[in-house]
Design a protein around this nucleic acid. Structure first.
Lengths: 196, 196
DNA sequence: TTACAAAACTAACGCTTATTCGTTTTTAAT
DNA sequence: ATTAAAAACGAATAAGCGTTAGTTTTGTAA
C-alpha cells in the first residue's frame, strides 16, 4: 500500500490539489481522470475520496486560490501612495512572478475555469470582473492625470492582462532567459512601447 | 428526419466543423460529446459519421484551417516592401480581424490544440513555431535597423502574440466598442506604449 | 417508374468515467 | 497490547463515451 505524502506542512488536500493542477494543465480538466491522478500520486482512485469531496472540488480549490492571490495583491497595492504607472509596473511584475512560481495553478485558473460548476462559476467570474474593473479604474485615473495616453481604458487593460496571462509561453523558454530581463522587457514594452 | 444543411456553398464537412468549433469553444473539446454536437445540428450522432471520420478529425480541420490562414498571411506580408513596424501593425490588425470574424475557430485552435493526436499535434506545433520565428526574425531586423528598442526579441514577440491572442476577451465587449478604436488602441499601445 | 447512391435512422458494442460501498490495513494514542 | 480513527483497498454501480453495423428513408437522374 502506498501513501499520500504531503511535502512541507501542507495538508493532504493541498498536496492532491497541486498534483491535480499539474495534470489539469497538461491534459485539461475534462481529459484528466481520477484514476490518472491517483496513479500520479501513487494510490487507488477510491482512496482520494477520503481527502476530497469530488473532482470538481479540486478545480474549485485551484481556481479560487489563484483568484484570491490576485485580488489580495491588488487590494494591498491600492493602499500604496505611489503613481499609477508605478502601480501598473508592480502589477505586471506580480503577474510574472506568480506565473513563474505557481505555473500549474495559474494556468489552470486561466484556462479551465469554465468547467467550474455553479455557483462557483459565477463566483469566479465575479472575482475576475472585480479585478479587471479595479485595473480599469486605475488606468482611467492615469488618463485623467495625463500620465497615460488618452486611449480606450478597457482595451488598454485587457491588452496588459492578455500579455501577462500569456506568460505561460515562458515555461518552455525558462532556461534561455532570466526573470529580470523578462520583467524589464515586458514592463518597457507595455508601458513605453517597442518603437524607439 | 432532419438534415444537415450547409449554408452558402460550403461542404457538409465544413458546416459540421463550424458547429463543432462553436461547441468546442463553449465547452472544451473533451467535454463536448458527439451526441451534443448532433443535437446542435439536429441529427443523430451516428449520422455525423457519414460525413466525418472521427471527432478528432473535426479538431484537426479547425486547428489547421486557422494555422494555415495565419501562415499564409505572414508569407504574403513578407513579400511587401514596407518597414518592419508597418508590417507589425498589419499583423496586429490581421489578428484582430481574424479573431473577430472566425472567433470560434481561432479560439479552439489557440486553446484546444493539445487534444490533437499525433502526428497532427507535432505538425501543428511546428507550424506555430514557424510563425513565431518569422515574427522574431522580423523584430530582430527592426532592432538591427534601430527602429525597434534593443530588448529581448523573443519576449517582445510573445508579448505581442499573447496580447492579440487574448482578444477573445473582446467577444463579450463587442457591442461597446468599434473595431477601428480597438485596433488603434492596441497598435498604439503595443508599438508606442501607454505612457504619455 | 425504376434504380442507385447519399444520408438518415435505431440499436448496440466495448470501454471509460466519477463515485460509492464494505472491508482491511495502517497510524497513533492510551 | 488495546483501541479508535484515518486512510488505504478491491469491487461494483450507473451513466456516458466514440464509434460501428445493419436497415430504412430520401434525393436524383435515367
Amino acid at each position: 500500500m502506498s501513501k499520500i505524502i504531503p511535502v512541507h506542512n501542507e495538508s493532504k488536500k493541498e498536496s492532491i490539489s497541486k498534483n491535480a493542477a499539474k495534470l489539469f494543465r497538461k491534459k485539461g480538466f475534462s481529459a484528466t481522470s481520477m484514476r490518472e491522478l491517483a496513479v500520479d500520486i501513487g494510490v487507488e482512485a477510491s482512496s482520494l475520496y477520503n481527502h476530497i469531496g469530488s473532482k470538481s472540488e479540486l478545480l474549485q480549490i485551484i481556481c479560487f486560490k489563484v483568484a484570491n492571490d490576485f485580488i489580495n495583491q491588488i487590494n494591498e497595492l491600492e493602499q500604496f501612495e505611489i503613481g499609477v504607472t508605478s502601480k501598473l509596473e508592480k502589477i505586471i511584475r506580480f503577474h510574472i512572478h506568480k506565473m513563474l512560481e505557481d505555473y500549474d495553478m495559474v494556468y489552470v485558473a486561466n484556462h479551465e475555469w469554465k468547467h467550474l460548476q455553479e455557483p462557483f462559476l459565477k463566483n469566479f467570474l465575479n472575482q475576475r470582473k472585480l479585478y479587471e474593473s479595479k485595473l480599469i479604474e486605475m488606468i482611467k485615473l492615469g488618463i485623467s492625470e495625463k500620465s497615460i495616453k488618452k486611449l480606450n481604458p478597457e482595451v488598454l487593460t485587457f491588452t496588459i492582462l492578455s500579455a501577462v496571462r500569456g506568460l505561460e509561453f515562458w515555461q518552455q523558454h525558462k532556461k534561455n532567459i532570466d526573470i529580470e530581463e523578462l520583467e524589464k522587457t515586458m514592463v518597457t514594452q507595455l508601458l513605453t512601447g517597442l518603437i524607439k
